[in-house]
């Protein structure tokens, strides 16, 4: 291990970390939003829309992100739609993430026993009150571990961005190996930087999970 090489590479990795985190978190925030909307549509069984969303989920959960990125980045320009590599990365993460988040949140909603809404209704609560004060808080707290797992999964999925010329952490490492053949240093930094990006998320996830568990009924 040559520490001079590592010092020389550090700025490149920091830049790559910045790009990865920026695209990753934008994608994650948007995918959570998309997931919530889609899950609510499924929960309330909105006609037509729920069919479209079911198709969307199956399509995006059962194809790799790489394939989706190829379609967005190389396919769309053929149809006359031009988006930059960054937009494409964010859009790709949002779409695959949205499908996972929908499923997680939907399972959280359906985990709430129907006896609870029945009891709430019999106590005289309005339908929207039942949903917002009884079902939703519990569903969110049940979904949190799944959300955190999805977030880590999405951040790791950024490693396929090299296919669309985005200099994320993975591509920076590969590119440096191809340019200067300092494999050990480049891979060492790659692992370190992925840990820098993911460990805090993982620890935060554990903390949040512990905090929100109080919301669950009957535990």
């Amino acid at each position: 291990m040559n520490w001079n090489v590592i010092r020389e590479y550090l700025p490149l990795y920091i830049e790559a970390l910045g790009l990865t985190v920026k695209i990753g978190w934008l994608g994650i925030i948007l995918s959570i939003a998309l997931g919530l909307v889609c899950a609510l549509i499924l929960y309330f069984k909105v006609p037509l829309l729920q069919v479209i969303i079911k198709i969307y989920i199956e399509l995006f959960r059962n194809t790799p992100l790489l394939v989706q990125l190829f379609f967005l980045y190389f396919g769309l320009p053929k149809l006359g739609i031009r988006i930059t590599a960054q937009t494409c990365g964010i859009l790709g993460l949002t779409l695959i993430g949205g499908s996972y988040m929908t499923e997680t949140f939907r399972s959280g909603l359906s985990a709430i026993d129907s006896i609870q809404s029945e009891s709430a209704l019999s106590l005289g609560m309005k339908k929207h009150q039942v949903f917002f004060y009884v079902i939703l808080p519990q569903a969110i707290s049940i979904s949190i571990p799944g959300f955190m797992a999805n977030i880590i999964f999405l951040l790791k999925e950024t490693s396929v961005f090299s296919a669309i010329s985005l200099m994320d952490l993975m591509f920076t490492a590969k590119d440096l190996i191809g340019l200067e053949y300092k494999t050990i240093e480049a891979l060492f930094l790659l692992v370190v930087f992925y840990l820098i990006m993911l460990l805090p998320v993982s620890l935060l996830g554990t903390y949040i999970e512990r905090r929100v568990r109080y919301a669950a009924y009957g535990d």
Partner: peptide
């Protein structure tokens, strides 16, 4: 603008 493989660079 860097790509991994010939096929991708070509399409781009």
């Amino acid at each position: 603008q860097k790509y991994d493989a010939y096929a991708e660079a070509k399409t781009a």
